[in-house]
Design a protein around this nucleic acid. Structure first.
Lengths: 235, 235
DNA sequence: TTCGAGAATAGAACGCTGTTCGATAAGGTA
DNA sequence: TACCTTATCGAACAGCGTTCTATTCTCGAA
């Protein structure tokens, strides 16, 4: 054979491949698993090559986050916009929350730099346009969107924390983790911790998504009241 | 002189000193500044000595967070408990938010491991006891406390992000930072981004604390409605 | 066909990090 | 004196993000 196909092949990359493999790595093994060396070996190339496409790890994470948001926006592009602004807001917020939960690492980065993640702005805009339909003052509109966004992302971050290197062997491990906490709590003095004891059994086996929706509905209920009542009292 | 005071003195530490200096370091220079070497030089000792008191950086951060919570609990021990449960809940939530904002690094760690931070549980308990006075079902009580907590900590995390190594030279720089964002946003197409354009001027010069209180009041308003109305409808 | 410029790849090193190991000293007890 | 426990620390290790420099490939111009 006269072909020059012998010798070690050099890897061929692309920005899409770099971002894509980074997201895959993050999703599969968590934030701690994303290292330039691990990423390079996934790409089948050298470590330094990544810097041709991305100038730092910060930029890599910003781009990865933005890419996930792009996918989210495409997937929810034609969400059935409800007649009720609050129902529309709820749909968008739930969809955003669910997508962040699929990529627990990204919550932290969504709020960091709006310039580095241009598409995050579009997600904000969509939420904002629903709230605008409530005809409140610019200030109240801004506060309402901020509240919903803070709750969505904040809750997603809270729930998406990586466990502190504890036992995570078998599947269904989540239940036993919750049960372990509950065990500790049950040992607390019921006189001193009446609330904890009241909700222990609710906590065990609770569903994060249900918990999120319940909190969101509280905000939306408050928003319905506020928007129907006084038009933007100061403070 | 017959004294044996020559030669290099060995440093004398204590758990309180280690935690205290760690907190000081975090508060003064941010999360990235807390390294074992920096901490050791602050304590005037060697790096390895810190491991006598603390077995890992994770434990150090857990203990530091818990210590800040202890101080918070002491400071707010006798908050004037309002007659209205929601007013009491509001007081506690605002106090917690303000204290977290004084230590922006700690928000991330508060949710991580309840066992490693025993006093965080007490803060939860206090919030829960106010909500209990609303006489809702255990499930609704649990959801309400989770919502408030998620909003408090989530918002504190969002607002406490370290800027991505941008220009942070002079004081009053915050305004110019906001203004820089606003500049970018004003360049967006008003047709495509009506919400962004509506709130740009509200965003510039907005007060984080006011923004937080507005969101909190939405939740509380919703909570008032929900607790007065149907007694815990199933989703 | 040769040359050179640029795009793309990568090995090796640098400084920094959390962490571990082993040596060393001080205080109290038998 | 001998000895165990408590406490301290220098030195080293592996891993990290990042940079430097050299190399290969592609392709249009001469």
């Amino acid at each position: 054979m006269a072909g020059a196909s012998q010798g070690r092949r050099r890897a061929v990359h692309s920005l899409e491949a770099v971002i894509g493999e980074a997201i895959a790595l993050l999703d599969e093994a968590g934030e701690g698993a994303l290292t330039f060396r691990a990423l390079a070996s996934r790409l089948g190339g050298g470590v330094a090559s990544i810097y041709w496409y991305v100038s730092s790890k910060d930029e890599l994470l910003d781009r990865a986050t933005d890419q996930v948001v792009v996918d989210h926006l495409e997937r929810t592009e034609d969400l059935p916009r409800a007649a009720d602004p609050l129902a529309g807001l709820r749909e968008l917020a739930v969809a955003l929350f669910d997508d962040i939960r699929l990529h627990p690492w990204m919550g932290k980065y969504m709020m960091r730099d709006a310039e580095a993640q241009p598409h995050v702005m579009i997600a904000y805009e969509r939420l904002g346009e629903q709230v605008m339909r409530l005809d409140m003052s610019p200030r109240d509109t801004f506060h309402a969107v901020s509240a919903v966004l803070g709750f969505v992302i904040g809750t997603a971050i809270d729930l998406g924390q990586e466990p502190p290197a504890g036992a995570d062997l078998a599947a269904g491990d989540r239940d036993s983790g919750l049960e372990a906490y509950a065990e500790t709590w049950r040992a607390l003095d019921p006189e001193k911790f009446p609330y904890i004891h009241l909700i222990i059994e609710e906590f065990v086996g609770h569903d994060d998504a249900v918990q999120f929706r319940a909190g969101l509905d509280l905000i939306l209920e408050g928003l319905r009241r506020t928007s129907a009542g006084e038009p933007g009292a100061d403070d």
